[in-house]
Structure formats: C-alpha cells, structure tokens
C-alpha cells in the first residue's frame, strides 16, 4: 500500500498550519462585530416626518405595516392633510426586505442596527408608533380587491 497513512499526514499538516493562524471564530454575545453601513435591522419610524401616504403599507409583501390614517386640520386654515394616528410594525412578519424604506418619499421609515428580538407573545412583537395603537392583524387589501374585479371581468367576457 503506497498511500498508507498519507491522508492522515496531509490532514495533520493542515491542522498544524492552522494553529498558527489567527482564529476566525468569534465569541458572539461577548464580541459583536461592527455591522456594515447597509445592514438591514429592525425597522423604525420617525412619526414627526411621516405624511401617512400609505405607500409602505401597500408595498409590504408580508403586510407587516398597519397604519391608521386620519384627516387633520393642522394650522386651523381649514386645509386638511392626512395624518398617521397609529402606526404599527409587526416584527413577527417582517422579512427585512427594505421595500418600504425604498418607497418612502420622506425617508421616515428606516432600518436600525438592532436585529435581536424576542418576546413571549407574538403580538408583543408588533411595535407601536404614533398616538394610539393599531391592531397589527389588520390586513391592507388593495391587491386582493384588484384580483377579484379582474376575475369578474374575465367571467363576464366568458359568458
């Protein structure tokens, strides 16, 4: 057997060489590396800037953003503007795809560096911003509505 024991020798040579190289494992809870600038963590909203345009709610693939909108007269001039009274982000649904951040016209919704989130109850994960809480289970339904209307026209054409 010409190759007897060579495999072990080769393997041990690599093992020994590795012993003198810096380790790449990191002791996670004690050591936290710096996150890159683009890192996508939990979402947060700056309610002062929000104009309640509802674009983030509509684009969200997981329907994790729920907004309660109200028309309010801010300066008493009789001109009403939409205002988000309630704003909730359900972290149990969010998949950090960043679509809401991209559509926001005033950059009021953005990613933080936080990514560790835990709770005993699923609804605890729905974080509330704004004046009064919103039921996070409420689903925005524009897409389904559109589908239904399309199905109707298809049925009409077929008939």
């Amino acid at each position: 057997m010409p190759g007897l024991g060579q495999g072990i020798l080769k393997g041990m040579a690599i093992t020994i060489r590795r012993m003198f190289e810096p380790k790449i494992t990191r002791q996670y809870p004690e050591y936290r590396r710096e996150l890159p600038e683009r890192s996508r963590g939990m979402l947060t909203v700056d309610m002062d800037r929000c104009i309640a345009c509802l674009q983030c709610m509509r684009i969200c693939p997981d329907h994790c953003i729920s907004i309660e909108q109200e028309k309010r007269d801010f300066d008493g001039s009789g001109k009403v503007r939409p205002y988000a009274v309630g704003f909730s982000i359900d972290d149990s649904r969010c998949m950090y795809c960043s679509l809401c951040v991209e559509v926001c016209p005033v950059n009021c919704i953005y990613h933080t560096e936080e990514f560790e989130v835990q709770a005993y109850d699923r609804l605890e994960l729905a974080r509330q911003f704004g004046e009064r809480p919103v039921d996070p289970r409420r689903d925005p339904i524009p897409v389904r509505k559109r589908r239904a209307s399309r199905a109707k026209t298809v049925r009409k054409e077929a008939a």
């Binding site: 683009r38 890192s39 950090y96 795809c97 679509l99």
Partner: peptide
C-alpha cells in the same frame, strides 16, 4: 454580501 446588499442570505 452583507456589505454590498445589507443582508447575509436574503439579499433582495
């Protein structure tokens, strides 16, 4: 990937 896209696996 994380530095470029912001995520380690689900890049989008």
């Amino acid at each position: 990937f994380e530095a470029v896209t912001g995520a380690r696996m689900m890049f989008h």
